[in-house]
């Protein structure tokens, strides 16, 4: 299961909407071993494409070194699909090189509803996992316009505030 702060999820979706119809990509770093996505880092899509994304190789090295220095790792690696569902393509699976990361996919094909799904991709095998949004506040009910991979009943909102 992926537990993600509502504000970070909103920032990811905003990034995907901003770059639409090109694919957007980025990471959310968190302390090593914590499985807690804490620091959102939007990345440049070096491919600048509607059907492909690739981290800029220099930005990638810089961001990964910075995470290393801060004892962080990439808890989430996300990208958007802008005309298809939020499910890993064959290309996504071919490239997936971080088995400990959550691969979050966002589909912006529908203007009003954003599809958000999360996966583990290990040795070419895709496993979907539940997404739990934490810290959703009453006035950020925009969250309700997200459609997750599972039925709405399995989406658990936890308000810590």
């Amino acid at each position: 299961m992926l537990a993600i702060d509502a504000a970070i999820l909103e920032a990811i979706v905003a990034h995907a909407r901003r770059d639409h119809p090109d694919e957007a990509c980025g990471v959310v770093a968190g302390p090593v071993g914590s499985d807690e996505p804490a620091r959102h880092i939007p990345m440049e899509n070096a491919a600048r494409s509607m059907t492909f994304y690739e981290f800029d190789s220099h930005e990638y090295l810089r961001v990964w070194r910075e995470m290393d220095d801060l004892d962080e790792e990439a808890v989430i690696i996300y990208h958007s699909h802008t005309a298809t569902e939020a499910y890993p393509s064959r290309t996504d699976i071919s490239f997936a090189g971080w088995p400990q990361s959550h691969y979050l996919l966002v589909s912006t094909r529908e203007p009003e509803v954003t599809e958000v799904r999360s996966f583990r991709i290990v040795d070419g095998t895709v496993s979907e996992e539940q997404v739990r949004v934490v810290n959703a506040t009453v006035d950020s009910m925009a969250v309700q316009s997200y459609m997750f991979g599972q039925s709405p009943a399995t989406v658990d909102y936890e308000c810590r505030a």
């Binding site: 990964w64 393509s89 064959r90 996504d92 071919s94 490239f95 090189g97 971080w98």
Partner: peptide, 25 residues
């Protein structure tokens, strides 16, 4: 020297890169 797996992908249906997962795993 630093080695990192490329982070890439996307909606494109790519026969050209099929089978790549085995390349790094």
């Amino acid at each position: 020297v630093t080695i990192l797996p490329a982070v890439a992908g996307g909606a494109v249906l790519g026969g050209a890169v099929a089978g790549g997962a085995a390349a790094l795993s």
